[in-house]
Design a protein around this nucleic acid. Structure first.
Lengths: 125, 125
DNA sequence: CTGCATCCTATAGGATACTG
DNA sequence: CAGTATCCTATAGGATGCAG
């Protein structure tokens, strides 16, 4: 068998792998903002759309479906007329709180230092 | 003046903003893996290329330049023949360690649960 | 060795209109 | 109300070749 040469320490490679795994699930412009919004309480589709300001329904529904797949969010349908749909966060999703807190804290403390090289995005959202 | 209506709580919107800021700097497939590699010690360009396995020189150099812009990495050139370039991490970049640790821990603990809906990527890298 | 130039593709994400 | 369908663009990222 071809023994593939590895570079860097084992712990280093394993760390990269784990970080990539985590980022994979949370990837997407709106995943974390959605989780943050839903942490405050259940929301309806159009409530989320207003709260996330710039998101389009197509993207919102895609992100929600992905969050549902990964068990971060539960979708509940009520047979009213017209239909009512509630999205709520799962207990499981609390597991990403440390990530959110770490990012939030870093963002707060280093906001001024960030170099926005691509475009002039507003600093605060 | 048009008073724009805001949705969600103030702390919630502020959290979203900070998280977005943090993600902005760390966005890119290779930013965090690069920082993780460089935490272990200074590396040369082609060492990084081998260590990150699949990265192409163009992308590597782009990511390194962005990390340099944000003061995560310092580029040192030595006038040897051929030229030697060393990349090393800055003390400042230690500030993202909590983020990396949070992501790493989450990735380790939830690896099996991750639903890879887009493509069949290998679970470990 | 380092890394830019060029070309290329896939995909994330947005705009708009429409439906059960 | 809660989405889907269609179309579109920008950009991240990859492949390859070349240069100081």
């Amino acid at each position: 068998m071809a023994e593939e040469k590895k570079y860097g320490s084992e712990t280093c490679r394993s760390a990269m792998g784990s970080v990539k795994d985590a980022l994979y699930v949370l990837s997407g412009k709106w995943k974390l903002p959605l989780i943050i919004a839903l942490r405050e309480g259940p929301r309806r589709f159009n409530e989320l759309q207003k709260e996330l300001v710039d998101i389009t329904p197509k993207v919102l529904s895609k992100e929600l479906r992905e969050l549902e797949l990964n068990e971060f969010v539960v979708r509940k349908v009520f047979n009213t007329v017209p239909v009512t749909v509630i999205y709520e966060i799962t207990p499981y999703s609390a597991s990403v709180n440390p990530i959110i807190e770490a990012l939030k804290e870093w963002g707060e403390q280093h906001r001024e230092r960030i170099v926005r090289h691509r475009k002039n995005e507003p600093v605060t959202v």
